[in-house]
Every structure is written in structure tokens, then in C-alpha cells.
């Protein structure tokens, strides 16, 4: 088959080409203008949508990204293992973690390591939640708390103490030993449901 020669302009019947017609909104009539005035006027008598914030607090969505929380195992040991994955995942470089070894006298978490220093800088954090996805132990999650304003830079760098979740019923304040006859794997599997009396060494 011979090469196809493109048509010359003169051979094309360009007058028959259909130009697509687009409907323009055009100008509105007098009534259209009056409609606009009616909208603003009638809105005066509608209930404002405003939430009077400091007095009334609208609840956030369930999965709203608020302040972080460092969680505990049901016996009170910390979940964080100081792996720094959250810090590496953070796009804003807001997390600083320093891990340390657990010893028999000073055990903060099951397994070998725990997070010794844990800081989140809320001046940098963009609440993207990537740190939560990165955390292998579900140690780090987010709460719905959004009132994070303060008047100095230092106050907005949250330390481990500020971030750790509270001690709930059945929990003991670490450091304390692991549940008897349980390994860290049992911890992760959820076999430990509360503290054992033998763990209460601080009494």
C-alpha cells in the first residue's frame, strides 16, 4: 500500500466542518438579579451555622487526627520499643526518638528495647498520620484532641510524659517485670489482659 498523502487544504471541504457550539450562560435578566437579592435577604432569617467555639465544642469526626498518644499494654508496660520507625516515616521531621535497652531492674516495655526519649514537635507536625501507619506495635495512635495552641515554642514540644496514655484499671506503673511465663510475642498477641500480682514490685 502506497504511502497516504495528506490532503491539501484546498481539497478539504472545510465549510462543512461543524464547529461545536457551546452554550454560554449569558447575561441574567432583571429577575435573575432580584433572585440574588432575595437569597441574601432570606438568609438573614435563617439560623446561623456558627458554633460558638470556646463555649460549645462540636465533636470531631471519629477518626480525626488530633494529638498523639503513646499506648500501654494491659499490664501497664509501654508498647513503644524505640524503633524510630515513626521518626523516619515523619515527612515533617517532627518526631525525635532515643531508644534504650530494657534491663531486669528497669523494664519499661516487653522485649529488648524501649523508647527512652520521645518527643513530638507540634510546631512541625502536620497531622498526616504517617507515623501511626509506620509504628509496628500500635504504640503510637492519635486522639481527637485538637486544642494544641500555646504561647511558646518549648511548650509545643511534647515529651514522653505528655504523650503517654493514662494508667487504666489493672495496669501498673512501669518499670516492672513482664507477666510471668509470657514472652513479648504473647504481649503482641494480646494474651496479657491485666497485671499479675507478682509484677507489682514497686509496692
Amino acid at each position: 500500500m502506497a504511502e497516504i498523502e495528506p490532503l491539501k487544504n484546498s481539497e478539504r471541504d472545510l465549510t462543512k466542518v461543524e464547529f461545536s457550539q457551546v452554550d454560554q450562560p449569558g447575561s441574567v435578566g432583571l429577575l435573575g438579579h432580584l433572585k440574588g437579592f432575595w437569597i441574601t435577604f432570606s438568609t438573614i432569617f435563617k439560623k446561623p451555622e456558627t458554633v460558638e467555639y470556646p463555649e460549645v465544642k462540636a465533636p470531631t469526626q471519629e477518626r480525626f487526627h488530633g494529638r498523639h498518644q503513646l499506648n500501654r499494654h494491659p499490664d501497664g508496660l509501654e508498647k513503644c520499643i524505640g524503633c524510630e520507625l515513626c521518626a523516619w516515616a515523619c515527612p515533617a521531621d517532627a518526631i525525635y526518638v532515643e531508644g534504650a535497652d530494657n534491663t531486669e531492674e528497669n523494664r519499661m516495655s516487653p522485649g529488648e528495647r524501649y523508647g527512652k526519649v520521645y518527643q513530638i514537635n507540634y510546631l512541625r507536625c502536620v497531622f498526616c498520620g504517617l507515623c501511626i501507619e509506620a509504628c509496628p506495635t500500635r504504640a503510637l495512635t492519635m486522639t481527637n484532641e485538637y486544642e494544641l495552641a500555646d504561647d511558646s515554642r518549648a511548650k509545643l514540644i511534647f515529651e514522653k510524659d505528655d504523650l503517654l496514655g493514662p494508667l487504666r484499671a489493672g495496669m501498673l506503673m512501669p518499670p516492672h517485670p513482664m507477666y510471668p511465663d509470657m514472652t513479648d510475642t504473647n504481649y503482641y498477641k494480646g494474651d496479657v489482659t491485666q497485671a499479675h500480682p507478682s509484677q507489682d514490685v514497686n509496692k
Binding site: 497516504i4 498523502e5 495528506p6 490532503l7 487544504n9 472545510l14 465549510t15 466542518v17 464547529f19 457550539q21
Partner: peptide, 18 residues
């Protein structure tokens, strides 16, 4: 006047030609 203009237009692609 919505017809094609009288001045020359750039070539249409070959596919259209066929």
C-alpha cells in the same frame, strides 16, 4: 460567520485524512 476561516489551517493529523 461561524464557518471555517478562509486563511490556511495547519495540517490535520494523518488518521483524519484516511
Amino acid at each position: 460567520n461561524a464557518d471555517a476561516p478562509s486563511f490556511s489551517l495547519p495540517q490535520l493529523p494523518v488518521a483524519l485524512t484516511s
